[in-house]
């Protein structure tokens, strides 16, 4: 029973991080029509960037605030400088370009911070653990379980009630229409790409105290967020939520019940969804 609760919490905390990252991926895809292979690299940059700022100013919160914002600026610069040039072209070139970005960013991280793993301490407020029956459970994970849905709720409110949120939703449904009603689409694209990058980077900054920071952390995340969006349905907001939660839970319970075979579980989930519901759980019929 306790083990069950612990696994549930673990699954939820990782699932919530995945949700943030997958929402960024799916929003960028919905509006720009570009699947960003470098999304996991932005996650990793978020972790490294905020870690750097934490070390400089010795404040977790400042790192969480400034780090992802800087990465979002980098994302917007890359969108304006590079991605914008291939929108009109065959979809392969967009995929190739973001894939090239992935190679560059991943290696850049290795050059700047080296191949070693770094440990980031949770802030004093969230440090330590509390007694949970006979287990002790880190406070920080509990924070993640709460922060995820909270951020998700903020995002939902943003999309639902704010002017820009509504524009983004409209543009995701019909790009030509957005242009027709006088929205400056290039600006919109840049902002949305910035938002997507920011979400990935926030995920990274939040994940830093949760797992160690290392040069292959983007790798796991991009593949898992791909699995989330395929399972949930690419472009679907609730799909990203449910997909992320399922994947997080499968992974945390998998370590207990499936032993080493748990590595294969996400892929089995992916295969089953592709066979039974190729459009994903929340995917719209074409």
């Amino acid at each position: 029973m306790e083990a069950f609760a612990v696994n549930l919490l673990n699954g939820c905390s990782w699932g919530m991080l995945l949700f943030l990252i997958a929402v960024g991926l799916t929003t960028v895809f919905g509006v720009l029509g570009v699947l960003n292979f470098a999304h996991g690299s932005f996650f990793m940059l978020g972790a490294y960037g905020s870690m750097q700022i934490m070390h400089l100013f010795n404040s977790f919160w400042l790192g969480l605030l400034v780090g992802p914002a800087l990465i979002a600026l980098l994302g917007m610069a890359l969108e304006m400088g590079l991605l914008r040039r291939v929108y009109g072209r065959d979809v392969s070139y967009q995929l190739l370009l973001t894939f090239a970005l992935l190679l560059v960013l991943d290696d850049a991280v290795r050059i700047i911070w080296g191949p070693a793993y770094h440990v980031v301490e949770a802030p004093p407020l969230l440090a330590g653990s509390f007694a949970f029956f006979t287990h002790s459970y880190p406070v920080y994970r509990l924070f993640l379980v709460a922060a995820g849905p909270l951020l998700g709720l903020c995002l939902w409110a943003f999309f639902r009630f704010t002017h820009w949120g509504k524009i983004i939703r409209a543009a995701a449904m019909d790009r030509d229409m957005a242009e027709g009603v006088g929205i400056r689409v290039p600006l919109l694209f840049t902002l949305v790409f910035g938002l997507g990058t920011w979400l990935a980077a926030v995920g990274g900054a939040l994940a830093a105290p949760h797992q160690s920071v290392g040069p292959s952390m983007g790798e796991r995340v991009i593949i898992e967020s791909f699995i989330v969006v395929v399972v949930g349905g690419l472009g679907s907001f609730p799909g990203a939520f449910v997909g992320a939660l399922i994947l997080g839970l499968i992974e945390s319970f998998g370590t207990v019940f499936a032993g080493r075979a748990q590595m294969a579980l996400p892929y089995i989930l992916l295969a089953v969804v592709l066979l039974l519901r190729p459009r994903g759980l929340f995917g719209r019929e074409a």
Partner: peptide, 13 residues
């Protein structure tokens, strides 16, 4: 890989 990525980007564009 970073060199290749940096070559690939202008080639693609």
């Amino acid at each position: 890989m970073i060199v290749l990525g940096l070559i690939l980007i202008p080639v693609v564009i």
